[in-house]
Design a protein around this nucleic acid. Sequence first.
DNA 1: TGTCCACTGGAAGGGAGGGCTT
DNA 2: AAGCCCTCCCTTCCAGTGGACA
Length: 410
Amino acid sequence: MENSIFKQYLERRNTLVKNRNILQTSYNPDQLPHRSDEIDQIASILAGALKGDKPSNIMIFGKAGTGKTAVMTFIGNELQKADAATSNCEYIYINCEVVDTHYGILSGIGNQSQTDFEKRIPYTGWSTEKVYMEMKNYIDSQSKVFIIVLDEIDRLLNKNSDDVLYHLLAINDFLKNSKVSLVGISNNLKFMEFLDSRVHSRFGEEKIIFPPYKTKQLEDILKERAKLAFEPEAIEFGVIPLCAAIAAQDNGDARRALDLLRVAADIAERNGDTLITEAHVKNAKNKIEVDAVVETVKTLPPHSKIVLMSIIKNTEDGNKTMTTGDMYSTYKEITEILGLNCVSQRRVADLISELDMLGIVHAPVRSFGRAGRTRVIELSAPKDVHDVLEADELMIPLKTYRNPKQTTLM
DNA sequence: TGTCCACTGGAAGGGAGGGCTT
DNA sequence: AAGCCCTCCCTTCCAGTGGACA
């Protein structure tokens, strides 16, 4: 360790933060401030499962960072504790953002409580029908009440996967020994409207809405965590109220409040400061925003990157806005230089929509009367995006390319 | 009022790629 | 090895459209 390059950082650590995990959004606290009503409500519905009765299906709504997942995780843990003696129920959690196909969800349910490795459903290869049967048979063989939580359930909508919901809701008709209750978690309040009527009627049994946290409530949450995470006297008085205020503006998102506090602490520690200040929080805010965009851009599929590059190139050429057609010709030039096949304009239109949804570009559809109707595309990401793209392996040929007609393209 | 532009966005389907089954 | 199945990415086709202009 004597000459390690890490030495200085290790020595500097622990001056401010006592326990970093507590500030992670994945950390599950023992206390969930300002959510006792919601916990009671859900617990009262699910309590029947402990006696072997089938609880009503529940839909939980609330914006991002309102504690939906944290509350369900908490309840899941409590349920398992309470069930330890009788073993009447099984709690299964699926995040539909991670697993978003029929197959993935069904096999996820079938595998989560399956302890026998030999009997696990392979993650691809079977027909969905077979996976469903296997899962159903497994569930029925357990003679328990299964509480299946589908987090981010709205992800299933655009994948026309409400079939899978229908099958899960109807599964009770085919079970002899077990019962299944579904808990859906969504941050889209209109989720139910988009559902097939046969799914809609079965799912609407109980609805619970998580309101956004107010500034004061966010402060309480942060104080609670800060007490455990930081050394005493590590944070300036105004830091927590500032984090809370910024997050409150952002739909009362507790996750965001925690991120701000954690990143602010990181920045302070890295600077070797002995106190976390409001200035650190402001830096953190900026850093989080830029990091999020940069990370998204880095993980974009190749053609999306080229589309984005085309938009940047047009912007740098002085066209602050451009139509789909303009952008597509630039796109074709670039793909040619890169030595790749270009995709159709129809496909590019979808890629633009995706970039729009990610907030990287702004591309509303506008009509120019006789001059047609098209998207007006404008870059809305910070400048860092350009650097990230330019550094991308995919774009290497652009740097060395010289246009025979003009001087250089880039 | 109707025309017409430059697309948009839905639908259907192909085919590659991953992996199981027989 | 041949035959399936599922998902993802993509193509092709095409009806539909907002609004400036004649």
